[in-house]
Simulated scan of single mutants.
Amino acid sequence: MNQQILTIVVPCYNEEEVLPNTIHQLDKLITNFINDGLISSRSKILFVDDGSADRTWSIIYKASLHNEHVRGLKLAKNVGHQNALLAGLFTAKDASDCIVSIDADLQDDIKVIQEFINKFQAGYEIVYGVREKRNTDTLFKRKTAEWFYKLMKKLGIELIYNHADYRLMSKRAIEELQRFEEANLFLRGIVPLIGFKSTSVFYDRKERLAGQTKYPLKKMVSFAFDGITSFSVIPIRFVLSIGLVTFFVSFLFSIYFLFLKFFGTTQTGWTSLITSIWLIGGLQLIAIGLVGEYIGKIYKETKRRPKYIVDIDSYNLPFPQHLNHLEGEAMYNYELRQLPETT
């Protein structure tokens, strides 16, 4: 059986604190796989710089000069984690048999990549990395994540529970993924739609070694909302149902108040009046905002703008073997001459 070419895609945004360790660990892993005959010697690690403002690209670029396994892809500007991940997947697709995506902080256990490859060789085209438990998260994050997955299930959206973007995909699966052209990306929901034979591998997540998370609460809420509105129209139907119920209740109260006016006694009800106005006004604003969110997504889709623009691509370039004789100061001077001005 021919050895498969593996590419590990690593999206990076301001990751200079963790990158040296990440490069070292992934290079050691891929070298061991090659030595054991598990994958082809043409396998690579592709780091995607998502418009970082620190030394991220400089570290990637220098590593690619020294290490034949390391390659870099620099995007022209920050386009977000999902688009950066797509850029790496689509760039590596033509030169790979399978691709593993993983975050740069390596909180996901890289040891299970061997299980990913074993499952791929057994015939699975998509292998999901699923967290066994969430002990490293705060209670708030655990509970909100649990509620999110339950809500998505209620809305009829197929998600892999406790799975993020740590997965293996075959070349064929990524070719099918490339056919999904929507601008509003939610890969955790899109990948299961491909429908190819899939399985899961379970692991324990580790603490972040350095730097700060690139998904604070604000981004997590935005990400969750994008996921809901990109895959379901149930929220709009829910608002419509609330509107109908509110109208029906208001109609019953109108009959009741008319009954009091003609057959009983009434008093000035400023509190109930103003409460009703604020309640109905709030519902109207929520409904308009929700409908506007869907219209905004339609607006983005119709423009068909590119998801990302590549600035520098070293993935498909041959390793500079002519530099092997350079050492110390000579290599340092060469790096300074070749380093792009943008860094």
Score class of each variant (00 low, 15 high):
Ile234Asn: 09
Gly37Asn: 07
Leu65Ser: 03
Asn78Pro: 02
His325Leu: 03
Ile59Leu: 11
Ile5Gln: 08
Ser101Gln: 14
Thr229Glu: 11
Glu115Pro: 08
Pro11Ile: 05
Phe231Asn: 15
Leu155Gln: 12
Phe248Asn: 05
Ile30Ser: 00
Ala287Asp: 02
Pro192Cys: 07
Ser254Ile: 05
Phe225Glu: 07
Ser230Ile: 13
Ser254Asn: 05
Leu106Tyr: 09
Arg304Ala: 05
Phe257His: 15
Ser96Gln: 04
Glu293Tyr: 13
Leu209Asp: 12
Glu329Cys: 10
Ala92His: 01
Ile30Glu: 07
Lys206Ala: 14
Val239Pro: 09
Ile99Arg: 10
Met1Leu: 02
Glu207His: 14
Lys150Met: 13
Met220Ala: 13
Ile242Trp: 02
Arg172Val: 02
Glu293Ile: 11
Leu139Cys: 07
Leu244Asp: 05
Ser52Asn: 12
Gln212Leu: 10
His69Met: 07
Pro20Ser: 12
Ala84Ser: 07
Gly72Cys: 12
His66Ala: 04
Leu38Pro: 03
Phe262Met: 04
Tyr166Arg: 13
Phe180Ser: 07
Ile113Trp: 06
Ala330Tyr: 06
Arg205His: 04
Gly72Gln: 06
Asn316Gln: 08
Ile117Pro: 09
Pro192Met: 08
Asn162Tyr: 03
Ala95Tyr: 01
Ile59Lys: 11
Glu181Thr: 13
Tyr13Ala: 00
Gly88Lys: 10
Met152Val: 07
Ile45Met: 15
Gln121Pro: 05
Ser230Met: 12
Lys197His: 03
Arg304His: 15
Leu283Tyr: 12
Leu89Ile: 03
Ile5Tyr: 01
Tyr13Gln: 04
Gly37Met: 06
Lys171Ser: 01
Glu335Ser: 07
Val291Lys: 12
Val100Tyr: 09
Val233Leu: 13
Arg237Val: 03
Val249Phe: 13
Leu38Gln: 05
Thr268Gln: 06
Asp49Met: 09
Phe140His: 15
Gln267Lys: 15
Leu252Lys: 14
Phe251Ser: 14
Ala330Thr: 11
Phe90Val: 01
Arg172Asn: 06
Ile242Asp: 02
Leu177Asn: 11
Ala210Pro: 06
Lys111Val: 04
Asp226Arg: 15
Val18Asn: 08
Ser58Phe: 04
Asp50Ile: 04
Ile60Cys: 06
Gly129Trp: 01
Glu146Met: 11
Gly289Cys: 11
Gly292Phe: 00
Gly88His: 02
Thr342Arg: 13
Phe251Ala: 11
Lys44Arg: 15
Leu38Thr: 12
Asn67Ile: 00
Ile110Trp: 02
Thr266Phe: 06
Thr136Gly: 00
Ala104Asn: 10
Ser276Arg: 13
Leu193His: 06
Tyr166Leu: 05
Leu279Tyr: 09
Ile39His: 09
Glu146Gln: 14
Ile274Ala: 04
Arg208Val: 05
Thr246Ile: 06
Gly129Arg: 13
